[in-house]
Design a protein around this nucleic acid. Structure first.
Lengths: 151, 151
DNA sequence: TTGCTTGCAAATGATTTGCACTGCT
DNA sequence: AGCAGTGCAAATCATTTGCAAGCAA
């Protein structure tokens, strides 16, 4: 994310919090910065990078940020959930997930692929009586690091 | 799943267990039957349907069945994980997930869509240094029941 | 001074494990 | 006999919550 977008990011988060009477405190700003810098992160990762941030505050703040729609909780197989900035802030994307170390990296797919998937998903869901709201794609495999270390 | 396949299913599971010196016991057979009948199910659902099956045995048996590759553990947002028969037994498929009640239903996508996705995913992953092993697609929305009840 | 935040400690709840017992081979 | 499977109760561990003190409008 460019430094240019960073200001807009903070302004949007502050506005969203304000709408529900919540403040954009230092802890919350730090979490947003960390997620903007590091992408999908676990709570322990955020605590290590967060310099003294209390665990309970981190969980509470991430929950609040998710409630106002600026953060999203991801759940894959590992012990800890992962948190990332919401798509409204990052754009629509999917995830590369390493089967070995659990790392999650964002990927964007070509627009034609997204629209073909949308059409296919709508059709498949309609046949089962579902109304589609959105879709998540996880691409699982081995990340560059784990390929090298032969994990 | 047809009754015809059911016999083959049990034979395959028994063989897989046998390979690692484990038995195809009544509890394990019951779990396989329940998953074949009900699709992706939570542990509480399996216990209710399982008539006296102990919780710890259910967890332990599902773990063993997953280790020999006949069962898969799914994790979406809810309180409980869900378990389903592995794709080797059911064929490749994806999931419709109800945002409101958490129900998960299997869907199959047209072959052309799968192959287009495979190609797109390989290309996107390669750009990030990932080797793709497989992919999961979750289609999220509102199931037929929740549409009716206006949950 | 009213209400949102914070950190600590305690509680919660899904899942796992220790153990003694039963049952297959 | 010898090892796998079972159920109960206790332990684990990510996450949540109660509470008292700090801080902003």
């Amino acid at each position: 994310m460019s430094d240019d977008d960073r200001g807009g990011l903070h302004r949007l988060v502050a506005a969203r919090l304000d709408e529900v009477g919540q403040l954009y405190t230092g802890n919350r700003r730090r979490l947003i910065e960390l997620l903007a810098d590091a992408g999908p992160s676990t709570l322990p990762e955020l605590l290590v990078a967060g310099d003294g941030l209390a665990q309970s505050s981190a969980y509470r703040n991430l929950t609040v940020l998710a409630e106002v729609g600026v953060v999203r909780r991801l759940v894959h197989g590992g012990d800890h959930a992962r948190w990332e900035l919401a798509e409204e802030l990052t754009g629509h994307h999917h995830h590369l997930v390493c089967d070995l170390c659990g790392t999650v990296v964002d990927v964007e797919l070509p627009m034609e692929v997204e629209s073909l998937m949308d059409r296919a998903f709508d059709a498949a869901a309609a046949a089962a009586g579902f109304d589609v709201d959105h879709h998540n794609v996880d691409i699982l495999g081995r990340c560059a690091d784990c390929r090298v270390t032969g994990n």
